[in-house]
Simulated scan of single mutants.
Amino acid sequence: MTQMEVVRISVGRPQALTHNGQTLDSAISKRRVEGRVYLSKVNFEGDEQADLVHHGGPDKAVCAYPVEHYAYWEETLAVKLPENAFGENLTLRGLTERDVRIGDIYQIGGAVLQVCQPRIPCGKISMRTGVPNFVKLFKDTGYTGYYLRVLEEGDVDANPELVLLERGQGMTIAEVNHVLFHDDANRDAMRRIIGDEAAAGSLREMLAKHLERLEKGEA
Rank of each mutant, 00 (worst) to 15 (best):
E153I: 05
Q49K: 13
V37E: 13
G168N: 05
G170L: 13
M1H: 07
V163F: 07
T141K: 06
L211V: 04
Q117T: 04
A208Y: 10
V42Q: 09
G123H: 09
D140W: 07
Q114W: 01
G110C: 06
R98N: 08
V42A: 06
Y106Q: 00
M190S: 07
L81H: 10
E152V: 11
E152M: 08
N84L: 09
T91D: 03
E83S: 15
G103S: 02
P160A: 14
T76W: 07
G145K: 00
L90W: 01
E152I: 11
N89R: 08
P132F: 11
I102Y: 04
S10I: 14
F86N: 07
G142H: 02
N89F: 08
G195H: 13
E166W: 08
R31A: 14
V150Q: 00
I102M: 04
I108D: 08
A219Y: 09
Y70W: 04
G94R: 01
V163A: 11
R192L: 11
E175V: 06
Q22P: 13
D51T: 02
V7Q: 12
M171K: 15
T76I: 07
G123Y: 07
T129E: 13
R191C: 10
A158F: 05
H19N: 11
L17P: 06
N186H: 06
D51G: 05
R36G: 15
D157M: 14
T141S: 08
